[in-house]
Nucleic acid binder design. Sequence first.
RNA 1: UGUCCUGUGGUGUAACUGGCAACAUGUCUGAUUCUGGUUCAGAAGAGUCUAGGUUCGACCCCUAGCAGGACAACCA
Length: 563
Amino acid sequence: MTNEANSEGNKEKESKNFIEQIIDEHLKNGRFNKVHTRFPPEPNGYLHIGHAKSICLNFGLAEKYNGKCNLRFDDTNPSKEETEYVESIKEDVKWLGFQWDGEYYASDYFQQLYDWALQLIKDGKAYVCECSQETISQNRTTPTREGIACEHRNRSAEENLDLFQRMKAGEFPDGSMVLRAKIDLNSPNMHMRDPIMYRIMRAHHHRTGDDWLIYPMYDYAHGESDSIEGITHSVCTLEFEVHRPLYEWFVQNLNIHAPQQIEFARLNINYTVMSKRKLLQLVNEKHVSGWDDPRMPTISGLRRRGYTPESIHLFADKVGIAKRENVIDMGLLEFCVREDLNKKADRRMAVLDPVKLIITNYPEGQTEMIEAVNNHEDESKGKRMIPFSRELYIERGDFMEEPSKKYHRMYPGNEVRFRYAYFITCTGCKKNEEGEIIEIYGEYDPASKGGNSPDGRKIKGTIHWVSAEHAYPFETRLYDRLFSVENPDDAEEGKTFLDYLNPESLTTIIAYGEPSLKDTEAGYSCQFERMGYFIKDKDSSGEKSIFNRTTGLRDSWAKEQNK
RNA sequence: UGUCCUGUGGUGUAACUGGCAACAUGUCUGAUUCUGGUUCAGAAGAGUCUAGGUUCGACCCCUAGCAGGACAACCA
């Protein structure tokens, strides 16, 4: 290594994303003297990879600036939220490796929020409106036209106070009235045209039970919750950009701590969908086995698929943070798992599409144990023994009766290395009446034991194998992208994203693995040499194993063939 | 339609706040290799949406367009 390379390496001034630049500025100009972020999921579904980006951002910011990050459940809509989701969210955040500083719920603040609403009413900045949903919407008109004030807008503070308290007390039916902020009916920003702060809803809340009959809306609750927790930087996605003036209006008019809301572009990945609504639909309509189906972009799905927290961190790191719309290639996610798994996954041999190979010059009935390295990237992983015998299974694709150009696996007359074992020269094959190859024959060179070249002769191909007699059969689930088009969201006329589901997103086969695969537990992740990364699924039980394919290996041979 | 946001290689993100565009991924070559994996070496690929302007000099600033996105829920 040259000195130049060294000094280059030390220089690496990592560039900051725009949010960090804003924070630097705030720290410099004294607006804030610390960093306190929060991750605010609504417990109405499972977390997905898009949330992971946000989690890594928020918790990452706190780490970088030596600050704090809260986990806050935005549970202001009891009709959609459930405890099951709260638990899964906590599990996912922890699995990603983050520990929140405070665990909060917007519902913890219902009383404070209510009191502040009373204050706004007294200040003449909020009023109870009895208009119907349609009327309110109509009166707001369109952005280009002025809004229309309804007869409730100029009620006295006393009357509003009385009405609002009676709303809370349950004197009025659901939906009969709302509390509205009195801001600006002519604002070009529709969110400022007297937004709704509270609605009457007789729904059982997962935490406050039946204590409340009125519930605050997002816009009223979110900024205030941030404020209560002393959040400095309230990071959210782009669609809330238009809400920022409203966010600021509330903290300003309540005269409470004002966090800075900053918006960034949400994550999009091709060949999948990211909206909670659509993910929920996939689950409800049983297009997938559940929220944690390995094809789902959910964190629990990725986990079951074999993704590691590290691979997701790497991914979040690589996609970056910015404000422009983006679509990340699924290939990047796959690159990230391989990058991580290559270093730590055990190597094992398993044949996914088996065909029998008989070594005609190998003694019948003999079995010998072959030593194999667990991971060439990490010698500390040690070695293991694998049985070898006269009859083996090899991959159907590793034999060609009439080889194509550049093919250097088994074909009549060609010598191939059987990984860790011997050099075997193919001598022919047998076919059934349909012309399918049912057996392949070969002769081994006893001097090449261990797979080493006895005389230094070059062998182009190395293939994996499994002793037929000792093979351990197990179910293998080969996963592919869930959708067959890049962007299932933009469905053509008369179709929905469901019409683009990939019928081959899951293929179940029986694979034959080396015996060591039997003594593994669910969650055991390894590389089947030359085939890809696999993880033992939780559906496994006792002797029965199920392995999910996390992702295949890079395959430049397949690319070559597609030319 | 109105307001706001965004516009840099195929994709994603940078560019020390004005000094002729970097990194990653992807693609293609080649080398190494007991995984057609990994690793290594190299190449191609944008002249920064367009048109003006300011400036010695602009991806960064200004003006006008164009394109894409967000919003017009008693969802978040």
